[in-house]
Amino acid sequence: MKFSDFVASEAIRSQVHATTKEGVIREMAQSLVDSGKIAEADLESIVKAILKREELGSTGIGRGVAVPHTKHPSVGKLVGTVAVSQDGINFESLDGEPVQLFFLLVSPPDRPGDHLRALENISRQLRDEGFCQQLKAAKNPIDIQNLLVEADSHGVAT
């Protein structure tokens, strides 16, 4: 699976305003509403579900990266977006480091495989430290989108 298969390009944010864990999750979910990927009516329920998942263990997986996510019956296919915090946000990460790079995923409950393949793609690409650095340094959503397209073109995830 490629980034372009699940990342809503209009929802990408290069400079989130939020400074808290809940705030950034809310801001990213709102960006999915604004880009028409999820319904306004489902926003609260999706945000709550993502926060509930975080209670089970932070999705801050280290290296300044977090993948907040949930299953939700309102989506017919996996949708996601990317956001960068310039200052970094305390996300109770597994390595204790603040998180700058966020990949938020909402997946249909009956498609665990798609969720796994999205995680696979994200983690495979992020093993490249240079790619992480470039994303964090991106100045605007278009830069991020271009980096994702470039990664898609040579990172062949099976």
Partner: peptide
């Protein structure tokens, strides 16, 4: 079948995309 992952790295483990 096709790859190895460092068991101590979440990032590595996720690249296995191991389904049920």
């Amino acid at each position: 079948d096709s790859q190895r992952a460092d068991g101590k790295s979440i990032l590595d483990l996720l690249t296995l995309a191991a389904e049920a």
